[in-house]
Design a protein around this nucleic acid. Structure first.
Lengths: 129, 129
DNA sequence: GCTATTGGTAACAGGTCAGTTACTAATCTG
DNA sequence: CAGATTAGTAACTGACCTGTTACCAATAGC
């Protein structure tokens, strides 16, 4: 089952959200969802086939964790279709160019004693890390 | 049917891709896809319910067009789950701040006679329009 | 007004998917 | 070793979804 079909089921989306907070066992996921454990087990198998989760055996337990790269087919398709609201569409190259400009600007203004406009460049640097 | 379930069907995704190139009639979409016209008609109804397409009556014809904002529930959910690869995550506010910096930089360099580095700020302005 | 074209609906058949209960395999614990 | 816990599988049922053909309504063109 592909990633699109895997995301179509609300139970599977809920499982992914739960796993986004960190790895979990099958019993834990079944306890926090209104379906039986075999149903959870099968949903997890579907998600694993789609590359959205991965399992690690630990004795008799099995720890499932989210695999965010598995969402790439969906995100890629969505972005190929175009932005949902004509919002900003920026590539890493754009950011690099802008980053260069901003660093030069702030340095120039410091040396020339410009006004105290806030230095937002650090925001991006932090988020892209 | 919600947007997630609507995107689960490959035929519906193909219809959306076709509509991304511009509005189309039902007959046109049916002709370019290996399913009957009633099937296309029902797929379009599903997509309309999900807010992914909209129709405009034009005489006996009906022009369907893509509604990109309908994808918002999906994109929002995906981005709430976290970035697939830790890529750049930039908001419009960041871009505005950067844009301000860049415009000031280029102006300063013009007045001070700097090198001929290209003016990338216009790129962003065009893409966000 | 008659015919052709466009689009939606109805009814039906086929297949798939989600859920359950019952059972089995493997591992930890006393 | 015996019992308990964890996880997966098998078999089954019920619902839903997708596709088809046949039919109906509305509009354009002669």
């Amino acid at each position: 089952m592909d990633a699109f079909a895997a995301l179509a089921d609300p139970v599977r989306r809920a499982l992914l959200v739960a796993l986004a907070a960190g790895p979990a066992r099958v019993a834990d996921l079944a306890a926090s969802h209104p379906i039986s454990r075999p149903a959870v087990s099968r949903h997890l198998r579907v998600l694993a086939e789609a590359g959205l989760v991965a399992a690690t055996d630990a004795g008799r337990e099995r720890h499932y964790r989210l695999q965010r790269p598995g969402l790439a087919p969906v995100t890629d398709w969505l972005e190929a279709l175009g932005p949902p609201d004509g919002g900003p569409r920026v590539t890493a190259a754009h950011l690099d160019a802008l980053d260069l400009e901003v660093r030069r600007t702030t340095r120039d203004r410091r040396t020339t004693g410009a006004d105290g406009a806030d230095d937002r460049a650090d925001d991006r640097a932090g988020e892209t890390a």
